[in-house]
Amino acid sequence: MSENVLEIHDVKKHFNVGNKQVVKSVDGISFSIKKGETLGIVGESGSGKSTIGRTIVGLYEATAGKVVFEGKEISQLDRKEKREFNRKMQMIFQDPHASLNPRMRVGEIIAEGIDAYGLAKGKAKQERVFQLLERVGLHPDHATRFPHEFSGGQRQRIGIARALAVQPSFIVADEPISALDVSIQAQVVNLLEDLQKEEDLTYLFIAHDLAMVKHISDRIGVMYLGKMMELAESQTLFQEPLHPYTNALLSAIPVSAPKLRGTRERIVLGGDPPSPINPPSGCPFRTRCPSTMERCAVVMPEWKEVKKDHWVACHLY
């Protein structure tokens, strides 16, 4: 568990939106993920959590900074290495309705990656597809059906089978359960946990549902407006949050039982998150922060390790 599979160093991803305006979706983020670990990323809409996931997978090219996977920087890979990287790094998408080709049969969808990498042919390929379907809790007969014949939860299982087909070692799951019903969410989360153990996978789990992220992650990173605010082990983050934003975010989670009503002291954040096109100077959270200081408007606080494995970017520490 000690070796870092993925390291990202000061990664930035900026989008040009015309009128000479630039959206800094991800603005200088660094973290690393150990083998077999699950790192959860939480943040509100517009925080850049999906962008960081897509940058890591290579769907976006980073504007600046380095993404290092298994010791190699991904922008420096040659064609052969890049192909291998694409196999090892897979993604599960949020919307199970939009991420499967409606004109392809489920078997074809899953076999596409197997074909592309020549992992199996003919009967062996067929067997592999059946095996994958069973592994994710579907029936081999389902291979000949089309995606529209399945419910949301089943489709998400197909998406997982497709990701597993090429025997990846790292999976980026971008809000894999937020489009599903409560009772189905638990099915998919349990499946992801089982697969992690059996296949020795490493996960980057992106979500906005804090309770679910806490459940599945070993460590959690909190993002706000393109910056990482805090990163710590999940227990620590929930019990001793340091950053005022993390504090406010945790206090906003509804209680889990009516008898606990009113026990959680709510920190109400004034206003809305600022526009990412025109973020505030210094720390992006300072406009809503209850403990803002003069210094916050001047410089973005440094990203530092305050306690062991507990990173935070805030002038308070």
Partner: peptide, 18 residues
């Protein structure tokens, strides 16, 4: 039972409805 309980300290496995 199928939602994680934030107020419980231990990590329990979720019990989904099949």
């Amino acid at each position: 039972k199928s939602v994680p309980n934030l107020d419980s300290p231990d990590k329990e496995r979720l019990i989904p409805i099949d």
